[in-house]
Design a protein around this nucleic acid. Sequence first.
DNA 1: ACCGCCGGGTGCC
DNA 2: ACCGCCGGGTGCC
Length: 810
Amino acid sequence: MQSRRWFGGAGLSFADDPVTETLSQAIRGTGEELDREPDARVLFGSLRGSVVGLRYYTGVVNKGEMVSLVRQPQNPYDRNAVMVANVYGSQVGHIKRELAALLANIMDNNLARVEGVVPFGVKNQFTMSVVLSFWGREENRDAVVRQIASRSFKLQTGPTGTHTSVHQDIENYDYLRLGCRITPFPPLSLLQLKNAFDNLFENLMEDKIGEREAVEAVCTPLLPHQKQALSWMCVCENNAALPPFWEDKGGLFYNTLTHSSVRERPQRVRGGILADDMGLGKTLTTIALILSNFHHGKPLCEPVKAASSQSTDDPAARATLIICPLSVLSNWLDQLDQHVRADVKLNVYLYYGSERNRDTHFLSSQHVVLTTYNVLSADYSGSASPLHTVSWLRVVLDEGHIIRNPNAQQSKAVLKLNTQRRWILTGTPIQNNLRDLWMLVAFLRLKPFDMREWWNRVIQRPVTQGDKTGLQNLQALVKCVTLRRTKTSRVCGRPLVSLPKRSVRIEEVELTQKEREEYELARTEGRTTISRYVAEGTVLRNYADVLAILVRLRQFCCHPDLLGKTTTHTGVVAVTPAELRERLIVKLKLVLGTGSDEECAVCLDSVRLPVITHCAHVYCRPCIAEVIRSEQEQARCPLCRGQIKASELVEFPLEEEEEEESNLLENWRSSSKVEALMSSLLRLRSEDDSIRSLVVSQFTRFLTILEIPLREEGFKFVRLDGTMSQKRRAQVIQEFQGDAPGCPLIMLLSLKAGGVGINLSAASRVFLMDPQRTTVCVQKQDLVEKAFGTKNPSERKTSRVDEIRALMEL
DNA sequence: ACCGCCGGGTGCC
DNA sequence: ACCGCCGGGTGCC
């Protein structure tokens, strides 16, 4: 009887029963095995077995229901025992002894994953059938087949087995047997899959429209799309609807994907994923949610009487815990300060630093507790974690993609938090893998997918194997819990964020006679070179050269000194190492345009400490050094796959750079474009001295040139370019956005690299000094295509060459 | 009858 | 379990 308490009777209430806790952990454990073995994707076959001992357990199963198989090596009656549990973790029975011996062998040696589906409705109370399918790595197939045969079981392969009389429809049979369709349709192509994946989060807005005003306590008026988000979030928190794929079947709750039924209502998801693009106001919306939707949909506190609500006798959870990366902690404090009316006394506690107050009563009595992922996981690894003791009303994960790795301590810590409502704020819900999404689903406790096994069997594997139904299910699931808008999203035909009407003016600047002559000289030279490449069919081989010529022409249009003095070089085959080096430095200079904000293909950020390879591609020195270090002798250029060596990296001679820099400023001269800009800025200032302007160029050196006349005319300006640290960038933006008198009116901006979204709503004028043209776009698109292999090479080649010929009028 | 047969008790691992 | 198995009761037809 003692032992029965341990192995029997499992599966009623999940939360506080130590037996079921062990059970769910056991199930979770098997899921993680699969995760560690991502190759367990090949189906070896299936066989029919029986589950016994049903009458000892409460778990019920339906026709077609998926069940999980859990080894019980500690079972006192049989160390080979294999337990059968339904989707909800309730034990159903055991695998019959002889079959259990076989499964134990296969499972313990990690030869295959074994999954169960119950093919018929259960008629009797003692035993039932189960179809076991075996999934694993190809190299283990033989061993598994042998094991099964040696114990006189028959492994069935292929869908046309002996049971088709029972299930007329082979396709349906497969579904019942395995819980997924084995490609009755041709599998989705990689491209289809990728597109579907990219579109997962698009168009998640239907049915969610409806606006809700924030309570008075929020002093910043919400934009329409923020009111929509608030409305959606309130609905998510308040409604009692079943999670997706669950149906109420009169007393039982039925899951349409796993075909399981449970007596207790599946826990509702009170929360979701707010995945709006950066800059759409996720923070403000969340603050509005905290204040607007307290208990029973009532506001948290009315403006006047809020301060006194230190209600220790109220057992209901009231505090919202916000977890964010350290870098945005201060942003939360600022925004709480900025958006909450000054006369509203919101108790906000910053749970951070060694002196933090760990008293759980204190923490529970706050309205908002702010902390970081690091603090959370540091606490969690200790003994009694205060944050895990408090019963929260709401937990908000800011930059929620941070917890996408389920093995990380902070992810584990986050899953263990005790809260009624759960929110994930993220701008990038999926980085590149479906697995990233699991953690988010698990955090939301989206039953039954918070257990890896069901996520893997029902969603992840079907989707990665190209099963259309799997993809549809994934889409439906994501849609239920996610709101995502991008800056280009539209609702009811209106743009999400309506900006003042943008007007674009192209001002053509006439070059002076002298400038024109220099430009024409360079152009003729460039055309000669490129037409030779075209004739030889070597455009692509000399692509860096070609781009450099084009960059150079654009530089001439800005300012003749942008490039600095260089020797013309084209066409001479390098003979000596010194000559080669010289040529590479010239190329480096050309590619970088001595100060264009170039992007490193390794880190995708602005190039720092630039070096050029012998194949003429430019990277950050640390980035490419790491590539070479890790690939050793086989190291290849990430862009062209040409061989590269550490000894052959050429860097820009520092003295020369500095010399050119000071040269540039000492012998400063103007240019037509500089004059045009200055006269516009001066005219603007005389009309309205509060208008702020952004001056954008990809050539940082051009920005340097522009600093001189700006200072001369007494303009206050700031500068932002790719070489600056994140911290410095934030400072500069802050300074520019400020509205104190004497704030800079002009920002010199060069930000080609890094995918850094910056919100520069302060500027009402933007001067694009050297608008990006098609070649750059072509180049980038090319990188994307290379990465995904979406376009055939010859197609790519022609379009690129044609582009260049058109540009050079060849 | 140191068998066969009958029918009640019983039953996961 | 409308089974199989076990073990006690029973014993020509």
